[in-house]
């Protein structure tokens, strides 16, 4: 009756607080913690450099991405063309920059779509459970069974070939997994005592979902989001490869890599440069994602 075992629970030492002045919000705290993570900072700066390179680069370069240098022809790197030229003699560096603009844009847009739809659907589904959950998850299942490529072809056949269609097609598939991840997280959290406590304080369902539950799921969500970016870039490449996505002379990293792979034996640089950019971006996103996940968990500390 007197629960002696519980009374003998060890005395918990008051934990010493973090020494410096603490921030106001989750994001400010996260930013403070992120800055202390060297790998994440380096990755972030590298990404920033790549973005700048792609966005500003084409204006500074004397070459155009769609006009071949006929005097020069297809050749390796030199002072005239730093990355060399492609099989048609076009400057590869400008093509990499233009491709980067497109790939980064597609990656970012699809991730934003996947985050906003996926997180909302997943959180609502996991929190309310029951019929709402069954309905939303069946919708996700149905969309899952639809082959992505079939969906893309369908959209392209109806609306014609355009970048918007590629965005929609990619966005429509990427939120599905995100929704499942977030649903799983919320499902495991919705019976947590702090959710019950928030309810006893009169917080509404939406308040609980958006203020209490979603911040708790940010770790896995962010990591998955950073994996979405490269995955989407590769899917776009696949579409382009089938002639459904970007059309020449426009470029994306995916398309440049697949062109480069075709000419790998006699123009290896045509594969190396775009592949290098793609892999560095991917690597940086991974580091940044890991760093963000740790930074967003207030229980993690950096010394």
């Amino acid at each position: 009756m007197n629960a002696p075992a519980e009374q003998l629970a060890p005395v918990l030492e008051p934990a010493p607080g973090e020494p410096e002045a603490a921030g106001q919000s989750l994001w400010q705290d996260a930013w403070r913690r992120l800055r202390k993570n060297r790998a994440a900072v380096a990755a972030g700066l590298t990404l920033l450099a790549i973005i700048l390179f792609c966005v500003v680069g084409p204006w500074l370069s004397p070459w155009r991405f769609d006009v071949p240098d006929l005097e020069y022809g297809p050749q390796g790197p030199s002072l005239r063309h730093w990355f060399g030229t492609d099989a048609l003699g076009r400057d590869l560096m400008v093509r990499c920059m233009m491709g980067g603009r497109l790939s980064l844009l597609i990656g970012l847009a699809a991730t934003v779509v996947s985050l906003s739809i996926g997180v909302t659907v997943g959180a609502v589904s996991g929190y309310f459970g029951g019929r709402v959950d069954a309905l939303l998850m069946r919708l996700v299942d149905v969309l899952y069974t639809m082959p992505f490529i079939f969906f893309a072809i369908l959209l392209l056949a109806i609306f014609g070939r355009s970048l918007v269609v590629v965005f929609v097609a990619l966005g429509a598939v990427t939120w599905l997994t995100m929704a499942r991840i977030v649903r799983g997280q919320v499902l495991s959290l919705r019976n947590a005592e702090f959710v019950q406590a928030a309810r006893t304080m009169g917080v509404s369902h939406l308040g609980i979902i958006f203020r209490h539950l979603i911040p708790n799921t940010l770790g896995p969500t962010i990591v998955y989001a950073t994996l979405t970016v490269p995955a989407v870039m590769l899917q776009e490449a696949f579409l382009s490869f089938l002639g459904l996505g970007i059309a020449a002379p426009d470029a994306s990293w995916g398309l440049l890599v697949s062109d480069g792979a075709a000419n790998m034996t006699f123009l290896p640089h045509e594969l190396i440069f775009p592949a290098l950019l793609l892999s560095i971006t991917l690597l940086c996103l991974n580091f940044l994602g890991d760093g963000l996940r740790d930074a967003l968990d207030p229980r993690m500390r950096f010394d």
């Binding site: 603490a22 702090f194 019950q196 928030a198 940010l218």
Partner: peptide, 9 residues
């Protein structure tokens, strides 16, 4: 230990 949200100040 569990009645406060670990992610909010």
């Amino acid at each position: 230990m569990t009645a406060l949200n670990p992610f909010l100040t």
